[in-house]
Design a protein around this nucleic acid. Structure first.
Lengths: 238, 238
DNA sequence: TAGATTGTTAATCGATTAACAATC
DNA sequence: TAGATTGTTAATCGATTAACAATC
């Protein structure tokens, strides 16, 4: 384990490597070179070798990487088998979709429960996980320390809930609210899934004029589109 | 509109600016400086000024940016009022959560319908949107061109569906399958929402030893944790 | 051994920050 | 006018790519 801080940009690529290794492992492919992995992941082999070197020496010159060995090395780096405990805050449709679809258990993450302020949900279940009232969260966290909070509540409540989760001493927040959340305590790691930002980054790229196809150019007024003066006032809405 | 290609890294920040401007607008704040916006967004003022300059000259020296004007300029850059048409491919829980929660209409995006291979869903609705059989998608796209496809199906079907969507001439794919999707045609823009990568990037950062708190250090074996030789074999599972 | 491929260092490229003239 | 703040250029920083010695 290298001691210098691993850049966030490197960390963000590790799960991708892991996914592809898992697919190879399922196909009973035993070894892979950085070149072959580069082809699959769409990244460069140089980048892959450099990224992996942050976490250890997994390969052999002239051979490549042993799939199972690299996989378990990365799983370890990802904290995959730390048996993290997680809670879901907000028991709406998205929360239900996540606990129903995402293979938390497979990757060693235990969902303890869902929490909501809606009392009518009390005593009901989501994919077998109990739903409790939010007011019970603090007590439950005191009894059983929780590592990860999955925050799938309204944007309005995001800051209040963040403060609560910091009080609860969670170590990471998987943030599905479309707002930036902050904590005065630097102890908590925040990972944002901003649907809004993601969708409109897509729309922006679709919209960029070198991507524009004929029919869109006809739909939007070309002159308006390219006239610099016009832009700020185009489509102004209340 | 600058003619040189806008870096993807810049594009990805624009929706964030927009979100904060929207919040300011709601509070009836009329103007904002790059410094003040920097404080809110957590980005540097220099970066903000440079990013915005890609899309036009929205500010005034000595004054700052007019919130409404900048907002509408960015909305325009994001293609927000292009009246994009969208379809949802895969009508599972995640799809249902998205169409129920995300304010597509507010931002000028029209959801036409959801499509699924499950015939039992035929004729049912999700938040008022009709659910059709996947086999009808091509015809519908031929009749009413679709700009954006929201791909929320199984990983297994991702490549087949991507090919179908390219045939359907969609311009962008919002990809919720946890796999890389490729298209030989370079015409389609792909935006990935990889829950897997996002969650494990979070776990990795929680796991990084300078983030490790006392109790986790006790739970995992310290010696094992820091011994380079041990890492590749730690927690090896089938 | 010869061929292949890693791990790592050096060179290049791109993004961020700093600085400031222009100007509202 | 004086103060403030943009838009833009130059300097710095960091990430990616290229290259290759080490070695399986």
């Amino acid at each position: 384990l290298k001691k210098d801080k691993i850049p966030s940009i490197v960390i963000r690529r590790i799960p991708r490597y892991y996914r592809h290794l898992e697919a190879l492992h399922k196909k009973e492919i035993k070894k892979i070179s950085s070149d072959a992995l580069a082809l699959r992941t769409g990244l460069s082999s140089s980048k892959i070798r450099q990224d992996l070197a942050y976490f250890g020496k997994f390969g052999s010159q002239g051979y490549g990487y042993d799939v199972a060995e690299l996989m378990s090395g990365l799983a370890n780096a990802l904290g995959m088998y730390n048996n993290y405990r997680a809670v879901v805050v907000g028991a709406g449709r998205l929360a239900n979709a996540l606990v129903a679809n995402f293979p938390f258990k497979k990757y060693g993450i235990t969902i303890d429960a869902l929490y909501d302020i809606d009392s009518s949900l009390l005593g009901t279940h989501a994919s077998g996980y109990p739903i409790y009232h939010l007011s019970e969260l603090q007590n439950h966290c005191d009894e059983h320390p929780v590592d990860i909070a999955i925050l799938s509540a309204s944007s309005d409540s995001a800051h209040t809930l963040t403060n609560l989760l910091v009080e609860c001493k969670v170590k990471g927040i998987w943030n599905f609210t479309n707002v930036e959340i902050h904590s005065s305590s630097k102890k908590v790691v925040i990972e944002n899934v901003h649907f809004f930002d993601s969708l409109f980054a897509l729309c922006c790229r679709v919209n960029t004029y070198d991507n524009l196809s004929e029919d869109l150019l006809q739909r939007t007024n070309m002159m308006a589109y390219f006239s610099e003066k016009y832009i700020p006032f185009l489509f102004l809405r209340e």
